[in-house]
Design a protein around this nucleic acid. Structure first.
Lengths: 207, 207
DNA sequence: TAGATTGTTAATCGATTAACAATC
DNA sequence: TAGATTGTTAATCGATTAACAATC
């Protein structure tokens, strides 16, 4: 176990390991190895061992890793042993799909509020949550102490919305808007613009 | 300009540069510099110059880059000077949001088919496209020569669907299912599971 | 015990940055 | 011309892999 704070790229792989471990646990498997995990994920076994060893000695020589124990450890590292409140901004098709997706609550992410600027959307219920006007966003996010937001507005308003969210205490943004957000260092952003992902892949296709 | 094939990580940044350049062009700006672009994107100017120089000499000393010319060059590199047909698999909330998202057609990605296994979904129209039964997927994808697919099925069937798509000629998959897909080297996958992205960020939040 | 697999070290590989001559 | 900015080189930094002693 090292002293240095682990690189972000390693942190980013932990949720992938966790997902694979959960799948194995669902199949009632109790033990796995860095080799088996690597096979499943297309990652070298050495990398998996090195990544995990940054956080502790979770395995046993000759045996491998006890799955439920490793799941618990990774959940602890990633701060997943609690529920996280989340706000959605934008109640268009993307915002609605997010609000209706069951995977969030299954993993402890609880949608607490949805905001939109469209008066026809405000007051509507989506998956049991009433859409509020975006003017209330800052106040409501602060009141509820929400730290996580999913941004599903048009690109044109995304930066302004992000600024307001951060001002209100949000510290992590899942960004669906097709724009690079400018945020302070202490705020994390993960972007999910599908168009840029498609454009990355067309490079490799026959023109 | 180098001879070696450029690293994938560089290819992945080109769509980001393109997006920023398009935004500048929309504002009627005609010329930019690696410094300005870097400021906007939170990337060093050296990296931008190095990335672009892998593909050609697109700039002018003392002046910078002519925006419309650079856009054209990057579009060419990424094979974006044509339309790409796309299939969506899964007509749930995510599949519907994808089918309704105008950003795809704006960037030359044309949704040609939507598939689902649910008989209640089959026959429905989503954004003008009739949902077909998933049993027809392989045949239809092959018939239309579709190379790009967006996978929005449950995790439990995602691998099987991917196998069928690849068998039918698909070479790039935008994967919304929360699973790591196993695919041959010649097939590209970009994954967009929002839960793993959130879990990456919670590491940095107060527990 | 014998076989398996970890955690770790050192070597390799790759990506980013700093610096600057070239030149528009 | 003088100032600005590119493209490129070399240096630095960081990530991955190979290999193996330790040990379950």
């Amino acid at each position: 176990m090292t002293q240095k704070t682990p690189p972000d790229i390693v942190i980013g792989r932990l949720p992938i390991y966790l997902r694979a471990l959960n799948a194995l646990a669902d199949q009632k498997q109790e033990v796995t190895s860095s080799y088996e995990l690597g096979e499943r994920l297309g990652i070298s076994s050495a990398q998996i061992r090195k990544d995990l060893s940054q956080f502790g000695d979770f395995g046993k020589q000759g045996t491998g890793y006890h799955i439920s124990y490793l799941i618990e450890q990774i959940r602890h590292i990633l701060h997943l042993n609690r529920k996280w409140d989340v706000a959605i901004i934008g109640a268009g098709h993307v915002g609605q799909a997010l609000a209706n997706y069951g995977g969030f609550v299954d993993h402890g992410f609880v949608i607490r509020a949805i905001f939109d600027v469209d008066p026809r959307k405000v007051g509507q219920q989506i998956n049991g949550i009433t859409v509020q006007h975006q003017d209330k966003m800052g106040e409501e996010v602060r009141r509820q102490g929400i730290k996580l937001a999913m941004l599903a507005t048009p690109a044109s308003s995304a930066q302004e919305v992000a600024d307001t969210l951060i001002e209100a205490g949000v510290r992590a943004i899942l960004n669906y808007a097709p724009i690079t957000l400018a945020v302070p260092d202490e705020v994390k952003v993960q972007s999910l613009d599908p168009v840029t992902k498609l454009q990355h892949m067309t490079y490799y296709l026959e023109p």
